[in-house]
Design a binder for these strands. Structure first.
Lengths: 285, 285
DNA sequence: ACTTTCCATACCCGCACGGTATCGCTGCTT
DNA sequence: AAGCAGCGATACCGTGCGGGTATGGAAAGT
């Protein structure tokens, strides 16, 4: 049975996303007729209708929706394959670790130091990215990432838990809750919360948050309050206070990497990170 | 940047597996020269050497090994995409569940009964397969599978634990250990163990095991002994006995399905299975 | 009913993929 | 050392398919 081709899947996802052959063709840098043909051909080959052409309106069929989702994973896998292969081929081997600035729970320096003493340790390149960090992993642009559960989608990734933290509410010292020794989620009703990039449109319509400094600044300006892992306390500005949120789900900082990763350097890094985290947790609480 | 094509990856995996252009070409149903060209083109496009042509010998480079692994996941994803799309397009919606005969811990009948009472339940098609059950899932041939941790590789799958069991040693009643009330792994030194299909060549060189009846038969014939989940006791022949293995890692029976699965029917099935397992475990131990 | 919009069809062209023939290197053989 | 055999690379050629232009035809808006 003749296999699907990447080109066809690219075409199909374009059409499925635009729901408009003309725009999809423009986006693909081609003209509309060959695109129509390609989709028809794909439908014929699969023996399944993917789109409902309603004269004016184009809609996905059930099967089309399935193929759209599947296509994305295939295309991700394909571009990751290219990127990882290129990286393996080029000389200068490095470990690319993507982090959220301020989101390392204070563990990162110790981990990096410990790792550099490992035999065969590679230089570690840090990439800071506030949102979309999982994407970088899935696309093969990075070797590992520091993520948070349950905040991030971990499907397709292997993980190593590093640090489980309770969460604190961060607010200006003048805030009505600033005097409390503890709060619970109900106390936050009506408070504007930050809108994280990538997260589907939340309660707040304010600006997207792109970095921790910006977030703390906005909090200081009384534009919002934020619920963050307690290790944030080490980095708080003087004009902000943090109090525990009793019923907020604990957050786990973890190291994530693509499934099936085989690099021994990455394995050593994971081992080191787990060891450092275990040690810290052991007497740090 | 021009993307990789499925055809190229198929070609490359053929060559990488055969390490011989001629044989690879034959396997692909084509002649050798276009294959050589395609690989060269792939290397040029990636800017990376994938194969070392040592006059007589063809070997994978580091990058080639990476691409081989990545290619397999891409090709799996692609064929799964085709299969799932076709299944979504055809009428008759069913849930395909792949099981190991005798490997259901006795839960399956209750799960199936409970599921059929769910609103919108689909007919469930059972597929029995002793080995390679994960593959069926990854290839999109099945919707869910009953697997065991740690026996199976669960990467790329989402899972729901159903039942954790201790393991027992199954042997003929005349076996030297048959009188014991418990054994430990050290007692098994030198005993021939079954060779499971898919598992990389183990200690035993006997025939591969393809079904539970066969295995028990071989055990009865004193050809081997087996360490199995304790629920196997319900299905033991009269001439066999089972005693707990104290230090064998407990086995967890779980339901696994492909990541990103969205079918509501599957979701209902998972929910039902979890509920049934929870109830059973609650008073069953 | 006329227009507009947009997908499908018809037709043509160029390229890239696959085939045949052959070269050239390498390692074994005697 | 020379001959040979195995095997990948190169050269060259034909054709099928992917992509382009022009146009048809159905549906929605006015």
């Amino acid at each position: 049975m003749e296999s699907l081709e990447v080109r066809e899947l690219v075409y199909f996802t374009a059409v499925a996303e635009e729901l408009h052959f003309g725009r999809a063709a423009a986006r693909l840098g081609m003209t509309q007729p060959p695109l129509s043909r390609a989709i028809q051909q794909l439908e014929r080959r699969l023996g399944v209708a993917l789109l409902e052409r309603g004269g004016r309106r184009v809609a996905l069929t059930e099967a089309g929706a399935v193929l759209l989702r599947e296509s994305r994973t295939v295309l991700d896998a394909a571009s990751a394959a290219a990127r990882r292969t290129r990286r393996a081929g080029r000389g200068d081997p490095r470990l690319v670790l993507v982090i959220k600035p301020g989101g390392d729970g204070g563990l990162l320096p110790a981990i990096l130091d410990a790792y550099q003493t490992e035999p065969g340790a590679l230089p570690v390149e840090l990439v800071c990215s506030f949102g979309e960090r999982e994407i970088l992993l899935r696309e093969g642009r990075a070797d590992a990432a520091l993520l948070h559960r349950p905040h991030h989608d971990l499907t397709g990734l292997d993980t190593q838990d590093l640090l489980t933290e309770t969460q604190v509410l961060v607010m200006p010292s003048s805030h009505r809750l600033a005097g409390r020794t503890r709060v619970c989620l109900n106390d936050l009703a009506g408070e504007p919360l930050p809108r994280w990039p990538g997260a589907s449109e939340g309660r707040s319509h304010g600006p997207e948050i792109h970095d921790l400094g910006q977030l703390l600044h906005l909090v200081a300006l009384r534009r919002m309050v934020a619920v963050l892992p307690s290790s944030i306390r080490d980095q708080l500005r003087d004009d902000l206070v943090a109090v525990p949120v009793d019923d907020a789900e604990p957050t786990t900082l973890l190291l994530a990497w693509p499934e099936h990763a085989t690099s021994p350097a990455l394995a050593a890094f994971i081992r080191t990170a787990a060891a450092v985290a275990g040690k810290t947790t052991a007497h740090g609480g």
